[in-house]
Design a binder for these strands. Structure first.
Lengths: 184, 184
DNA sequence: TCAGATGTAGACCGATCGATCTACTTTCTC
DNA sequence: GAGAAAGTAGATCGATCGGTCTACATCTGA
């Protein structure tokens, strides 16, 4: 009977937060302090820092994809569902602790293309793309349109990160509306 | 009579290349070796590593904005000029050594919002935005459309970095064509 | 109950980082 | 051509990094 969360869980939670807010370069000491965990526990559970990073990305990917699922839920019309997604993105980028796309930031943080983190970020994007294609299943050119929507999403996250525009998701939504209307 | 380039120039060139390909976390030793410059010269000319980073960004911003200018040059019709920009972006992202947007990568590399590099990246984006607004001067809603084009550009650079799509600029170009057509 | 597994606390190691300093050489200027 | 200025080469410093290790505490299950 384990009512309280163990060190493994606390490390994943701390990693998910600190890697997002501070970047993957966050020191091990900061992670241990945030998680209230002994140094040894990290290396017993994850092998090394990269192991923790990989596992955090895996968990975050599941959560974020679930977020996309709920952001799309509701309307029966696929166009309305996809436009609603940009409304949710508008709320997301307006959040004070929004710091952009975790996966792209991870890719940039590791110059070595062989780093295991890249496999996780690629997996996330492939799943996100599949999700968009599924939504567009009933409409013409689902693959090409999914690519465009994906580009709009990434662009929104970037613009939201740099704060160049107060509401980039609204600009993206308008763009999405035109192509979703055209392919109807 | 200085026919050969001095250490300052070599450092800027090496920094411009290494910071782009390896990220801002590149070590000072690697920079010195690449530039064939003594350690002392770096600190005499730029104070510290951040000084070099800032100066590299300043120079790169001028070059990149000039690239945008030439990418837009040619056609008299502003719509054609902007669509041509995405053709140039298509070539750019297809370059084997393309590694994405230098400025956004720099922003992500420094979690501290007070780091001097952020001022340079913000300056670049502001100038880029102004360039887009200028191009759209004769058309309706130049500010709003510039925001959308900016978002498409950033999205293209991200998608080109992660290689999710072979030609993200073409997807972006199609999106740009719809809004440029609509506001006509 | 008690033994093994699991966790904590923290010293410690080698490597690497940015930065300073000394000593010597080259280059430019007057 | 002599002296100042600028550059090279490299030792060195303190801090920090990821990772290992020892010693002790706690929890758990046969």
């Amino acid at each position: 009977m384990s009512s309280k969360t163990g060190p493994r869980e606390r490390l994943l939670t701390a990693g998910q937060q600190l890697f997002y807010t501070q970047g993957a370069a966050v020191g091990v000491d900061a992670l241990l302090k945030e998680a209230n965990v002994a140094r040894r526990s990290l290396y017993e559970h994850f092998g090394d820092k990269d192991g923790l990073i990989t596992e955090v990305l895996r968990r975050a990917a599941d959560e974020d994809l679930a977020w996309y699922e709920t952001a799309l839920a509701g309307p029966a019309d696929p166009r309305a569902r996809l436009l609603q997604l940009f409304d949710r993105l508008d709320e997301l980028t307006a959040t004070p602790d929004f710091r952009g796309c975790r996966y792209f930031a991870t890719d940039l943080a590791f110059a070595d293309p062989g780093h295991p983190a890249h496999a996780e970020t690629e997996s996330f994007r492939r799943r996100l793309r599949a999700l968009l294609v599924r939504e567009l299943g009933a409409l013409p050119h689902p693959e090409a349109t999914a690519e465009q929507l994906h580009l709009l999403i990434e662009g929104t996250l970037v613009m939201g990160t740099t704060q160049d525009s107060p509401h980039p998701a609204r600009a993206a939504r308008a763009l999405a509306a035109t192509i979703l209307g055209e392919i109807a």
